[in-house]
Design a protein around this nucleic acid. Structure first.
Length: 355
DNA sequence: AACCCGGGGAC
DNA sequence: GTCCCAGGGTT
């Protein structure tokens, strides 16, 4: 351990956690299913956003068998807007695996949990510790940040060496306390509420007097990676029939927005002509190109790794495309998965209020 | 080891 | 507008 005896740090942390812990939906009625659902939703996503999704999810799927029996479209419809949609698809697959291979009962060890789709080292440890009391440390971004500062450790947290190092440190704390859950949750809560990425509240920290990195907290943790953003331009067609329904197609299961529904479109080069793009999209689907059409509507969205620019042409047609897809009436789109980008562009292009 | 995968809040 | 956040899967 770095700056102070582990048992002393644990005692202070747990006292702080008992006094300051937030009441969150997944902290009551703590079953393995609810812990798992919350931990997966919380990956890359903030508590404030997850709460509503979590409550809707458990209301619709009270236990793992209900989730296993659902369609992927329904799962993704409840996931729409949360992002990183592979989490939702993997969660659905994992529920089916639990129902099929474990009789609908969650495996209770981190080693077994690790074998389920979408469960990696973090989620396996979190569920095993919080739901089953396994004496295993969790390492997420909050924990790594807290420990990097506590120990004034510049090892980059996003490398294999860093993960190993901070996991070891966290495990030393867990080993020094009767309840692994109290330490794991306390560390994550401390990172979320006090030892925040920017301007941490060191005055409110139970470890302030022991923290080796306090003076340079703003420089920690150290991270190795940084990635540029790509620009993607999409010419797309919002195709409407005479009843005002909209034609959507399901994306294939892997990759960006996998399994979600969207209007027809093609990716075009920065210098390409938009009209050529959406004409191509129509002719690919055996559709006639109209003699007159409105000017494109532009909708832009930025993701972590991409800048998306949709240039949208609205076309009304009495016939249907010859390729796979479906017409959606006004209230029907919410029954399937759609990205925030698509809901935004449908709103802009056809007045549909989906956000 | 490197790269892919969303969305939103803080500044 | 720009920056920042951050587990799991795939290759």
């Amino acid at each position: 351990m770095c700056p102070a005896p582990a048992a002393l740090l644990c005692a202070r942390l747990v006292a702080w956690f008992d006094a300051r812990r937030r009441d969150l939906p997944w902290r009551t009625n703590r079953t393995a299913y609810r812990v798992w659902l919350a931990e997966v939703m919380l990956q890359q996503t903030r508590v404030a956003v997850v709460s509503d999704y979590f409550l809707r999810f458990v209301a619709r799927f009270p236990d793992v068998k209900d989730l296993a029996a659902a369609s992927e479209d329904e799962v993704l419809s409840l996931w729409s807007g949360l992002g990183y949609y592979a989490r939702g698809r993997n969660m659905h697959k994992a529920a089916q695996a639990v129902a099929r291979d474990h009789g609908g009962v969650f495996p209770s060890t981190s080693a077994e949990l690790l074998g389920l789709p979408g469960i990696g080292s973090y989620t396996a440890a979190a569920v095993a510790s919080l739901a089953f009391g396994e004496r295993v440390a969790v390492l997420d971004g909050n924990v790594a940040r807290v420990l990097a500062r506590l120990c004034d450790d510049d090892t980059p947290i996003d490398t294999p060496v860093g993960k190993q190092r901070f996991t070891q440190t966290a495990q030393q704390l867990v080993d020094a306390h009767p309840s692994s859950a109290a330490i794991n949750e306390g560390l994550m809560e401390l990172g979320a509420l006090v030892c925040t990425p920017k301007s941490p509240s060191c005055g409110a920290c139970p470890w302030a007097t022991s923290c080796a990195g306090r003076a340079r907290a703003h420089l920690l943790p150290v991270k190795a990676k940084k990635q540029p953003r790509k620009h993607v331009r999409v010419a797309c067609v919002v195709l409407r029939d005479e009843g005002g329904r909209v034609w959507l197609e399901r994306r294939q299961s892997g990759g960006l927005f996998g399994g979600l529904w969207e209007p027809p479109g093609v990716v075009i080069e920065a210098t390409s002509d938009v009209e050529g793009g959406w004409r191509q999209a129509l002719s690919d689907r055996g559709m006639a190109v109209p003699s007159s059409f409105p000017a494109p509507i532009v909708v832009e969205r930025s993701l972590t790794h991409r800048e998306l620019r949709f240039e949208i042409t609205v076309v009304t047609s009495s016939s249907s495309p010859s390729t796979a897809g479906q017409w959606f009436g006004h209230g029907e789109i919410k029954a399937v998965g759609t990205s925030t980008a698509v809901r935004s562009l449908l709103g802009a292009a056809s007045g549909l209020r989906l956000l």
